[in-house]
Design a protein around this nucleic acid. Structure first.
Lengths: 354, 354
DNA sequence: GATTGGCACTCCACGATGCCGAGTGCCAAC
DNA sequence: GTTGGCACTCGGCATCGTGGAGTGCCAATC
């Protein structure tokens, strides 16, 4: 869609979108002029509105109602009419500060990100924890919980930590377990689950069991990366008058169960394209047609990565949502870089940060 | 409250509660007799109903409506009128089967429990992951992520695994880190965070840093045990007609944010008392007055433990909820026992299981 | 040719009205 | 103690009328 509207039409569309987002009521020519002086009469505005409706940017709920933006109208608004603001600095500082509190615990990043997104946008937020699509082994440990029950802890290259319980057929002491892990660890460092499984075939009884389990864990971690999602701000969903009453909110919550929403969203996500906005029927999944989605990925290049975003009614504050998503994704990317990046990269990054 | 109703009054109360739970509409004398033959006329039922209302077991929404159970009415029903059924065996088998799938991953137990509770009860479920109120150290590992960034993994006696990132001032190789952990691990096994912190004081630079961090992690784990909660079945909340429309559902969701609901519920939870039912205004917290809570704790004696339960409208299927909560709590307790119990205990437990 | 004021028309939201059905409470009779 | 009868009550629902906001069109004007 190219910009194809006259200056005045653009102005009117912009005001109608803003006004509708603000009030939630269809906007009429007169009431629009009461708030904004356009230097023309209602009749003129009406004729322009008629033109905009002709071109599918606006719609009437019914004959004697005002105009409401269509998905196409929102799209044009987001594309060409939105003042490209970034998040206010005080809020940036607050966010950075909050993240600093949990800097050390990687698992809490995603939770915090979800909370921040929800609170700042006033919408439902979704965040996937940082994961790698191909998990490679970093390190594992065997810890004796009690006789014949061992805890296997695996750390992947991407920093994901997993633990599984390993029942053994015979009793094996902590010393033996430590020796085993010391022997195996160097062998499987940086290998994928397939490679480890191949190794397991040739190995002895106990090592074979352990290696098999490790391979399983790695494979599982990759699978879960496709389905684990943290959501926050459910209460905001109900605050939306247009969603709260109908069965719409319920549908949305159902989509969240078991991360089903991810398989709906991911196919549409273009990685590394900054913030993406998907409005109403632009969503491939029909369930999401009543909603707008603001998405971004974070992390980078084969390292741990994920995506985050917010979902709300198409009548959402796009400017605010986009700047929030953009900023939080940046913060998450920075955090990940601080862990995995080589020193060179890190230095240049910190310089950029000033 | 002692049983204080005549046989016929009890029957009528029971039928009214059941009928109201089934239909959600106030129950009248005539419509009650249409479904159930009590061998008496509507007028008789009416007079009994009047008596029950007198005693606060029933209430009228308005003059010409049927009767609705009061919280007191539900209480009497749960206490004396409920047929004490256990969960149907096929469902028991399904649940056991589902847990067997994730047996090895301790972290997924709570999630699964929440999903099962929600699906079987058709209500919102809450589950806290198994935690110990006094965390003691089991084992830790140091893993070099990259130069000067180390991942510290701690495993507590209760089996909780935590990871934190440790920035160092100077570069230290994996070999040195492994040596350090091998030296320190035996020293701090089974210690609390306070004891470890005391040890840290006298230790050298790096060991001191590590021990301090470990103590922090332990302390944090204890704190989080008080606030971490998994909820499932939010969509069911909205299906409840009496909640979906009002702002009530929203209030409930707000309570869930950040585990605030735990601090509301825990003070009222008596541990080791089987399944507890808290109905409406019996809840100390006013926010929960519109709801009924079915709660149980699981786990045992200083080991990892937690609680689980469901929250729904006071008009809930108490029989089903209670039996579900009871069964799932039993399953969780069994699972934990299989990990931590000594072999003796385990044997007798398995024998009981047959 | 664009803009404007005027005007008829449309339709929703909202309150008032009336009716029906379900339910109650009471009472006299059994 | 139980019953049938009866007057009464009240919410729910449909119907109706009104007012306001908004539109579309057109002829007049700049």
């Amino acid at each position: 869609m190219q910009p194809q509207l006259s200056r005045r039409q653009s102005t009117i569309l912009k005001l109608i979108v803003q006004e509708y987002i603000r009030t939630g009521r269809a906007v009429g020519s007169k009431s629009l002029l009461e708030r904004y002086d356009l230097g023309v009469s209602p009749a003129t505005v009406r004729s322009e509105m008629g033109e905009l409706e002709e071109q599918q940017f606006l719609a009437h709920p019914h004959t004697s109602a005002g105009r409401v933006p269509t998905d196409r109208g929102y799209r044009y608004y987001v594309e060409y009419l939105l003042d490209d603001t970034s998040l206010p600095v005080p809020e940036q500082i607050t966010i950075r500060h909050q993240f600093r509190q949990v800097e050390a615990q990687v698992e809490s990043w995603a939770k915090l990100a979800a909370a921040v997104l929800a609170d700042l946008s006033g919408n439902l937020s979704l965040v996937t924890p940082p994961r790698s699509s191909v998990e490679r082994m970093r390190h594992f440990e065997l810890i004796s919980l009690r006789s014949r029950v061992v805890l296997l802890i695996t750390v992947t290259q991407a920093g994901t930590v997993r633990e599984v319980i390993l029942p053994l057929t015979e009793e094996i002491g902590q010393e033996q377990l430590s020796a085993l892990s010391q022997r195996l660890n160097p062998l499987i460092r940086d290998l994928t689950h397939e490679q480890i499984r191949r190794l397991a075939e040739g190995a002895g009884d106990l090592p074979g069991l352990v290696l098999h389990q490790i391979a399983d864990v790695l494979r599982l971690a990759e699978q879960e990366a496709q389905s684990e999602v943290i959501a926050e701000g459910l209460d905001y969903v109900l605050q939306q008058p247009e969603l709260g009453h109908g069965a719409l909110a319920q549908r949305l919550l159902e989509l969240l169960r078991g991360g089903a929403i991810l398989s709906v969203l991911i196919p549409q996500l273009k990685t590394g394209e900054g913030v993406q906005v998907i409005i109403g029927t632009e969503n491939r999944a029909a369930e999401l047609h009543p909603f707008a989605v603001v998405l971004a990925s974070y992390g980078a290049r084969g390292h741990a990565a994920g995506f985050l975003g917010i979902i709300g009614p198409t009548r959402m504050r796009y400017g605010r949502s986009i700047s929030t998503v953009r900023y939080v994704s940046q913060v998450m990317t920075d955090l990940l870089r601080d862990i995995y990046e080589t020193d060179d990269e890190e230095r240049s990054h910190h310089e950029r940060g000033r």
